[in-house]
């Protein structure tokens, strides 16, 4: 019996969003008489931080404090239309829709403020702390709350905005098969180190090093959180998770957490993450999406590392001890690649 160490690399391009019907997202933004804003969306925050990021985007665009923005994703029946939270599209698609909606709401807010201050709306700026004032004359100012109340109770104006982001559907060229289904790609590279036990077939990931290019990291802590958690899920898919095997019959397959294997905190490998920021031209404030991409490079990197360690090429996931042992037997034992 011997433990063999190996190292594997993978790099990926990951498309943000889909081509389906142009993959639209809509957003509605309106103010309440207290000067605080509600962003209505139908995409869901599953914990990936979409509400936090959209809140930042709305506050930045409106020019109000982030505390003054509430993001409501309560009801996809009554909310504006959205394709959903998938394909790493949240920040990019919803963020762009929110920018447009917030821009429209902001212009009405400035018109309401201008009417109260008796100035031209084009001369007004926001300070991001809840005040609107004349450019170069901070004393000629009105709070966003006073502007919202004036709009509601005096001017009869609705401070609201609509936004949609739609990438026109790309048809396939019937002659060449060419199409442009994506406008933005995120990128990742991953280096994984493993130890393969040639007696048990077990694969232990001992180290992970990654670089992710995500456009601008709009919320760097959330980005890192997602990369770390997502990469671990990728590791889990690479080496553990499967509804197979199921001997001797299909109905012996895993049905619960006792039989569906996932690595626990005791199986952790250190993961060293580098985030590269290259703002996307069509991204909201340059953001793309770290979403699914954080898991993807781990799988080929693990397979390559196993090949490096013992010389067998596992082409069906996950890399279970059984598959490694069968491949080792077929090969006549471990043949570490650097000794080939």
């Amino acid at each position: 019996m011997a433990l063999h160490r190996g190292r594997g690399f993978a790099a990926i391009n990951y498309p943000i969003g889909m081509n389906l019907g142009g993959d639209p997202s809509q957003a509605l933004v309106h103010s309440n008489p207290d000067g605080k804003f509600t962003v209505a969306l139908s995409a869901i925050d599953l914990g990936q931080g979409m509400k936090s990021v959209v809140r930042q985007i709305a506050a930045e665009t409106l020019g109000v404090p982030v505390e003054d923005v509430y993001v409501d994703t309560a009801d996809s029946d009554t909310g504006p239309h959205d394709m959903g939270s998938f394909a790493s599209r949240g920040t990019h698609r919803m963020g762009n829709a929110v920018i447009r909606a917030a821009q429209e709401a902001r212009s009405v807010m400035l018109e309401a403020a201008a009417e109260e201050l008796e100035v031209d709306a084009a001369d007004l700026v926001t300070d991001g702390r809840g005040n609107i004032h004349v450019k170069g004359a901070p004393s000629r100012s009105i709070t966003t709350m006073a502007a919202a109340q004036a709009a509601q109770f005096r001017q009869g104006r609705t401070i609201a905005g609509r936004g949609i982001f739609l990438v026109p559907l790309s048809d396939v060229d019937p002659e060449t098969g060419e199409m442009s289904p994506v406008t933005t790609f995120a990128h990742a590279a991953m280096l994984v180190e493993v130890e393969v036990d040639d007696e048990t077939g077990e694969v232990a990931v001992t180290d992970m090093q990654s670089a992710y290019e995500v456009g601008r990291a709009l919320n760097p802590r959330l980005v890192e959180q997602q990369l770390r958690g997502g990469a671990w899920m990728g590791m889990s898919h690479a080496a553990w998770e499967t509804t197979e095997p199921c001997y001797p019959a299909r109905d012996h397959g895993p049905v619960d957490f006792n039989t569906y294997l996932m690595p626990g905190p005791g199986d952790l490998a250190p993961h060293h993450i580098s985030v590269l920021e290259r703002p996307a031209e069509d991204g909201p404030f340059g953001g793309k999406g770290p979403g699914e991409m954080c898991a993807n490079p781990v799988l080929p990197a693990v397979v390559n590392a196993v090949y490096d360690a013992v010389g067998v090429r596992i082409d069906e996931l996950p890399v279970t001890p059984e598959k490694v042992l069968r491949a080792l037997r077929a090969q006549g034992g471990a043949r570490p690649r650097r000794r080939l």
Binding site: Q225, G229, W232, M233, F257, M262, G264, P265, G266, L268
Partner: peptide, 19 residues
């Protein structure tokens, strides 16, 4: 710490931030 939370599954974080 790892032993204490080894009976608790987390799908999102990869455990490291919890530890």
């Amino acid at each position: 710490v790892i032993e204490a939370i080894s009976g608790n599954l987390c799908r999102c974080t990869g455990y490291e931030p919890i530890i």
